[in-house]
Nucleic acid binder design. Structure first.
Lengths: 214, 214
DNA sequence: CGTATTCTTGAGCGACTTCAAGTATGGTGG
DNA sequence: CCACCATACTTGAAGTCGCTCAAGAATACG
């Protein structure tokens, strides 16, 4: 039996088609916590609509957003059975919950499932490494990379509809909210982008953005 | 048959013991390239002595060191069959080369091997996320974290023998070599550390360093 | 239409960088 | 064993990018 979530993403070659495990679709409201750092990892998640953020806090309250997950993405899989980071909905979202234990059991039986689990983790590793590389760049380069990444992942070429507030972007890029705002304004002044709304941005000169991306 | 490398790391529960695959020990000299970004990934590596660095270059020459690997560590495993980063020896090193294809074939046959491949990638992901968190901190916090990480991984408590030059530390921490040097000097002035040699550092006040680590 | 939230903008400051010497360190050949 | 050289490391002074603090403008929502 196919998982309910997979019907809407036929081309995605999901783990769950193969494992034959059914998940439960949960509607999650904006800013609701999906799981918290230190909690037992009971589920693995697939997001069918909306967006979520995973993050960690330093003792003094600084927040580092590790990743954003968008429609079609899976997240929440870790080696440990405790979550090492927290997860919240950025927007209202529909998320499919799958029993972690069932997935792991399926992986033990079926080598193809095991391979897809590994691929998922490997993809996350790759993304984490790209994120690390981002954090050594200038503020302009970081914001440019972010816009391009979002456009690519949302499958939007000329216009991006950002689901997250500026503060989330800042905490993802290791900048302050003011610097993010100023950098975007700067891009607008030089006609690299145009604001259709605060979170709806037209990429007028993607070539220039790509140059900044290195 | 056991891999040659495993005899010296009996407690390490190595993948290679289980897979029954034999690797070839290669002596690598300081600063020699082990593999380069974009090259086909033929091998998976286990380091038995010495240290290596993996890194990526931006177009203008800035270098981000992703990770250091020390005796007992495995590295070079990626999802893609092309390397997405480069790898060099930090010091003279002994490294065991294992055929990637043999490992992957073993993983397909044996679920336990597959699981250990996944664990390896998951551990690297965890480390990459910790690294990301490091890069949002102040220079003092970054250097303190680095010293503690190295002391822990080298199993040295009161004294650390750093295998890498300051430039490598700087490129790992996203700082300049001057800032790394100044921060270490500052730690010495406040008697948090003591230089026995430029790369041999006594941790006089690990508690203070841990506070900076958050 | 009013209120809360989000976003932008400005001015001043500070942390880290850049540029430029100067000082150890370690390996090599005499 | 020492003199020499290349490399690695440290230190100083000036500059800059992004941060902090503070307010104002736009937006969303009841």
């Amino acid at each position: 039996m196919k998982a309910a979530s997979d019907a809407s993403f036929p081309g995605h070659g999901s783990l769950l088609e193969i494992a034959g495990i059914t998940g439960v679709v949960m509607p999650i409201e904006r800013n609701a916590e999906i799981f918290g750092q230190g909690e037992p990892a009971e589920y693995i998640y697939k997001i069918t609509s909306g967006a979520v953020r995973t993050y960690r806090l330093l003792c003094d309250g600084r927040r580092q957003i590790d990743a954003f997950y968008l429609a079609g993405d899976m997240f929440g899989l870790e080696l440990s059975d405790m979550h090492s980071y927290s997860c919240e909905a950025v927007t209202g979202a529909k998320i499919v919950f799958f029993q972690r234990s069932a997935i792991l059991a399926a992986a033990q039986r079926d080598g193809e499932v095991a391979r897809q689990l590994w691929e998922l983790t490997a993809r996350h590793l790759r993304r984490s490494q790209d994120h690390t590389l981002l954090l050594v760049k200038s503020s302009q380069e970081r914001v440019a990379s972010f816009l391009l990444e979002m456009a690519r992942r949302l499958r939007e070429t000329s216009t991006v509809e950002l689901p997250m507030p500026r503060q989330d972007i800042a905490d993802y890029l290791g900048l302050t909210i003011e610097t993010v705002s100023r950098t975007l304004t700067q891009f607008e002044e030089q006609s690299t982008i145009e604001f259709l709304a605060a979170r709806r941005i037209a990429l007028l000169n993607p070539t220039l953005l790509k140059q900044l991306n290195s």
